[in-house]
Design a protein around this nucleic acid. Structure first.
Length: 482
RNA sequence: CGGAAUGUAGCUCAGCUUGGUAGAGCGCACGGUUCGGGACCGUGAGGCCGCAGGUUCGAAUCCUGUCAUUCCGACCA
């Protein structure tokens, strides 16, 4: 309907131009603003609040799995980067350097950290003496800088926020288990809190973290069918232990190198949240992560106002006591209709309307952001009803996202078919791969799609390489990626 | 970092071709009427036209440079 379209002004429809839709939404919903330095953004309160909610839920999970937080320095000596060859090659192009203090040159340049494996490695080498010091399980919440050529708010900014976990273990097996454990933690976070279905898998050698033995990732599908890496977890073997001399005396009185891991999730996940759930009306936040779960909108002319507000206040109180994150917009500056659209645009899961007609019937009206469904419910059990509805919405949003992802994913047996799936149908393509870098890069050159990961549980096993028709060593998801 | 486009009021944009008083809608402030899907009337505030040079009697307008944003490529979370 034409009328439908008028609900949200100034947001470009997704079908017309997804990129513009994304920029429109994050701007109109007041999540961020551009900063004066290229590629840098301000995380405005409404955007930062989303990150805080992610931090809260992730941090809880990290602590439950035995990790503790610490904070390591922003500046890292140049010599540290030289110690791990792949690592320095991987990050060198995007490192900003501090070379001067006042008018004096520094003896040694200091990198603004792009990631902290090196400085963790250095410190760990000093802290670890005995197998009794292991495992060492530390996480840090920090900002990092990577001077990317092309930036996009939340998805790729010059400076971003993240957490990075760094652990050291006595054996390879323990370290590998840690790597997988944290991948599970991220999976649970994405699926339970963000209602984002993810694909667990291992990165191909060309896509793995510089310096890692194995990199695992979670891949999520955005509404334009492109992939976004939601989290990574790396098994570093003893590469960094050897570079930084992290050794310990084991039970058998032998000196051994520790095995280390690292794993991270970034503010990019906010972009995923927006692009997985958002629609032409704006944001759509899953209840469990939504900073505000219910917006109460009192309705009615001045003569009934006091009566409505008194009842609305009581409902807000009831909901708060029940643990619901609720806010009321009782301002008289805007009409109810304006507020309806505004809070839908901001993605608040439930709108609670209350007006004189409701009071007469001892009810309120609840409206779901995800489906638009309206229902009246008696005031007396509103808290229980709201909580049930929040759970319903959370589950429904996950199911919707999962159905979308599965509907846009398919097996392919030729490069042409792969091209068609990722460019025309805009989805993920599952293909066999012989394991040769040349075949992998040919796919990238011809289709623009990259290997996302080798899934742990593929929906099918592919027998031959999609490029060379040799027997496939792996079944791989390919997609265009952010 | 290459290719393209765009920078004028808080936002969306017109004006630029053909140089000569800075514009509209929305938003904002004040007053009033309204209030169940972006209400209306009246009054008003708000701009070194991204920045720096140049051409010119005179530049938002022409030229050069620069910075930023968006899109497309190569690099990445």
């Amino acid at each position: 309907m034409a009328k439908e379209k008028d609900f949200v002004k100034e947001i470009t429809p997704q079908s017309e131009d997804f990129s513009r839709w994304y920029i429109d939404v994050i701007t109109k919903a007041d999540l961020m603003d551009y900063a004066p330095v290229r590629g840098c953004i301000v995380f405005k309160p409404d955007g930062y609040e989303l990150w805080e909610a992610c931090q809260r839920e992730l941090d809880r999970r990290f602590k439950e799995t035995g990790h503790r937080n610490a904070y390591f320095p922003l500046l890292i000596p140049e010599s540290f980067f030289q110690k791990e060859k792949e690592h320095v090659e991987g990050f060198n192009p995007e490192l900003p350097w501090v070379t001067q203090v006042g008018d004096d040159n520094l003896e040694e340049r200091l990198a603004v950290r792009p990631t902290s494996e090196t400085i963790f490695g250095y410190m760990y080498s000093q802290w670890i003496q005995s197998y009794r010091d292991l495992p060492l399980l530390i996480n840090q919440w920090a900002n990092v800088v990577r001077w990317e050529k092309r930036t996009l708010p939340f998805l790729r900014t010059s400076e971003f926020l993240w957490q990075e976990g760094h652990t050291a273990h006595a054996t390879a097996q323990e370290a590998e288990e840690e790597t997988k454990r944290m991948l599970e933690v991220y999976t649970d976070f994405c699926e339970t809190e963000l209602a984002i279905p993810v694909i667990q898998g291992q990165k191909t050698p060309s896509e793995k973290f510089p310096g890692a033995v194995a990199t695992y990732s979670l891949e999520a599908m955005m509404k334009d069918g492109r992939a976004l890496q939601a989290a990574t977890s790396h098994y570093l073997g003893d590469n960094f232990a050897r570079s930084f001399d992290i050794q310990f005396l084991d039970k058998d009185n032998e000196r051994k190198f520790a095995h280390t891991t690292s794993w991270g999730m970034t503010t990019r996940i906010i972009g995923a949240l927006i692009m997985v759930h958002g629609d032409d009306r704006g944001l759509q936040l899953p209840p469990r992560i939504a900073p505000t779960q219910v917006i109460v909108i009192p309705i009615g002319p001045a003569k009934t106002r006091e009566r409505v507000l008194t009842a609305a206040d009581a409902i807000v109180h009831t909901l708060k006591v029940a643990g619901v994150r609720v806010k009321m917009d009782a301002s008289e500056d805007n009409s109810p209709g304006w507020k309806f659209n505004e809070y839908e645009m901001r993605g608040i899961p439930i709108r609670l309307e209350i007006g004189p007609r409701d009071l007469d019937a001892s009810q309120v009206v609840l409206v779901r952001r995800d489906t638009g469904a309206k229902e009246a419910t008696p005031i007396e059990n509103v808290a229980q009803h709201v909580q049930d509805l929040l759970t319903t919405i959370q589950n429904s949003m996950y199911e919707t996202a999962l159905a979308f992802q599965e509907g846009r994913s398919q097996k392919v047996e030729s490069v042409e078919a792969l091209h068609h799936v990722v460019r025309e149908e805009k989805g993920f393509a599952l293909a066999g791969w012989c394991g040769d870098d040349i075949c992998e890069s040919q796919i990238k050159n011809e289709t623009g799609a990259t290997s996302r990961n080798i899934p742990f549980s593929p929906p099918a096993t592919m027998d031959t390489c999609v490029v060379c028709n040799q027997p496939a060593k792996h079944t791989v998801w390919f997609a265009r990626a952010y």
